[in-house]
Simulated assay, not measured.
Amino acid sequence: MNYETCTVLLFGHNENLEQELRRSGMIVDVFADSGLCGSLKDASANSKAEFFLTLRADGGFMPADVLKVADALLADPSKVYLGERTLPEKKSLPQNVYGFLSGLEAKDITTSLYGMSREFLETISCIKAKDGAFFQNIPLVARAKNILVESVLVESSTNETPGWNILLSTGKLYQVFIKFSIAAFIAYLVDIGTFYVFQKLFSGMDDEFKILTATVLSRILCSIATYLLNRGAVFNSNAKSTGAVVRFVILAVGQLVASWLLVWGIGSLLGGGDAVNTMLKVVVDLVIFLASFTIQRDWVFKESKGLLK
């Protein structure tokens, strides 16, 4: 394959790797392993290449890894490609937490090997981050910009399982979840408050139907607030309105049924009562809230070009 349109942005010194990549026909620009944001901006401004690959010289990657990512990029430049090394098969708890917060399924979340077009490089080079978290932020920023990121399994491997430091290195990991939590808290006040009020209004009913009625009415008001806040302020979704509404309604109904059955079922075992049912609803809806975050991000407000694989 012709690699003359590819420029490798190599951070740090690795003479053998540099020479092998040049022999393949690629242009290799070497930078100090610091000031990464400025280096990418300089590369996008000064280089005439169509495609770019980034990696740290000490990242354990081989020339074949870079070529494999380049092949994927040249075959379909509409995505950003992540060079994924083979890691221990079992994911660590920090990896699972990271995946929950980011929506990124790739196991190698500390990789520095990426492939992207000039257009995407210009977008991603606007990242404001410390060098230690710069590469980790690339897929997070790409997702926020609705750029598809795809993992490419390369030949290299690493035995270093990401630790808790990956959850402390960048605030961008938490931005969407924090906004989601604030929006949910606003809607939750509506939900819990109206749930308690409706229980009092329908106090003459049996517990089963009183809880159902209060749950339905409070959930309707909560769902309207949630949809408006999450679509506009949290996920900045441009997904087709009709499809997003339908998916949101399906999710809302599922949450409603789950909340009703769990509160009523567990409340019956504990003897019922308005105060008990309200406290149970707080706990049950917290669990539903965590599940709802990933469902809304990856399904309800998903755009076809905004997925991360």
Rank of each mutant, 00 (worst) to 15 (best):
residue 175 Q to V: 10
residue 69 V to W: 00
residue 279 M to A: 03
residue 274 D to W: 11
residue 123 T to I: 15
residue 268 S to C: 08
residue 121 L to K: 01
residue 44 S to M: 08
residue 84 E to A: 10
residue 160 E to D: 07
residue 79 K to L: 08
residue 133 A to P: 01
residue 80 V to I: 14
residue 213 T to V: 05
residue 71 D to R: 15
residue 99 G to Q: 02
residue 243 G to F: 15
residue 66 V to Y: 00
residue 108 D to R: 06
residue 120 F to R: 08
residue 106 A to L: 06
residue 144 A to W: 07
residue 77 P to L: 08
residue 99 G to E: 12
residue 182 I to C: 09
residue 155 E to Y: 10
residue 149 V to R: 05
residue 140 L to N: 13
residue 274 D to Q: 03
residue 19 Q to A: 12
residue 179 K to A: 05
residue 170 T to H: 12
residue 272 G to E: 12
residue 306 G to D: 09
residue 75 A to H: 11
residue 204 G to E: 05
residue 14 N to C: 11
residue 2 N to W: 11
residue 191 D to S: 10
residue 201 L to S: 00
residue 284 V to T: 03
residue 90 K to Y: 04
residue 21 L to V: 05
residue 122 E to A: 07
residue 45 A to F: 03
residue 15 E to I: 11
residue 273 G to E: 14
residue 33 D to L: 01
residue 28 V to G: 13
residue 67 L to E: 11
residue 2 N to K: 06
residue 205 M to V: 04
residue 254 G to T: 15
residue 287 V to T: 07
residue 8 V to P: 02
residue 4 E to P: 01
residue 129 A to K: 01
residue 9 L to T: 12
residue 258 A to I: 14
residue 295 I to R: 07
residue 34 S to C: 09
residue 103 G to S: 07
residue 306 G to W: 02
residue 49 A to W: 09
residue 114 Y to D: 01
residue 106 A to I: 06
residue 124 I to L: 13
residue 279 M to F: 06
residue 43 A to R: 02
residue 184 A to R: 11
residue 108 D to T: 09
residue 50 E to T: 15
residue 213 T to S: 08
residue 229 L to V: 10
residue 114 Y to N: 02
residue 116 M to V: 04
residue 10 L to W: 13
residue 228 L to N: 11
residue 194 T to W: 02
residue 148 L to K: 12
residue 141 V to M: 08
residue 222 C to L: 01
residue 222 C to Q: 02
residue 275 A to C: 15
residue 230 N to M: 04
residue 81 Y to W: 02
residue 77 P to H: 12
residue 266 I to R: 06
residue 123 T to R: 10
residue 59 G to F: 14
residue 133 A to C: 04
residue 279 M to S: 06
residue 84 E to F: 10
residue 45 A to M: 14
residue 156 S to C: 09
residue 253 V to M: 05
residue 17 L to C: 15
residue 202 F to P: 00
residue 211 I to C: 00
residue 274 D to V: 04
residue 188 Y to L: 13
residue 64 A to W: 01
residue 109 I to M: 07
residue 208 E to Q: 12
residue 164 W to M: 10
residue 219 R to Y: 00
residue 21 L to F: 07
residue 210 K to I: 00
residue 160 E to P: 00
residue 153 L to V: 05
residue 54 T to P: 00
residue 294 T to E: 14
residue 157 S to W: 09
residue 6 C to M: 15
residue 53 L to Y: 01
residue 54 T to L: 01
residue 144 A to M: 11
residue 35 G to P: 01
residue 155 E to A: 03
residue 285 D to K: 04
residue 131 D to I: 13
residue 257 V to Q: 03
residue 131 D to K: 07
residue 77 P to T: 13
residue 128 K to R: 09
residue 143 R to V: 10
residue 237 S to H: 08
residue 111 T to W: 10
residue 149 V to S: 04
residue 198 F to Q: 00
residue 140 L to C: 12
residue 229 L to S: 13
residue 182 I to P: 10
residue 68 K to I: 03
residue 231 R to W: 09
residue 77 P to Y: 15
residue 213 T to Q: 06
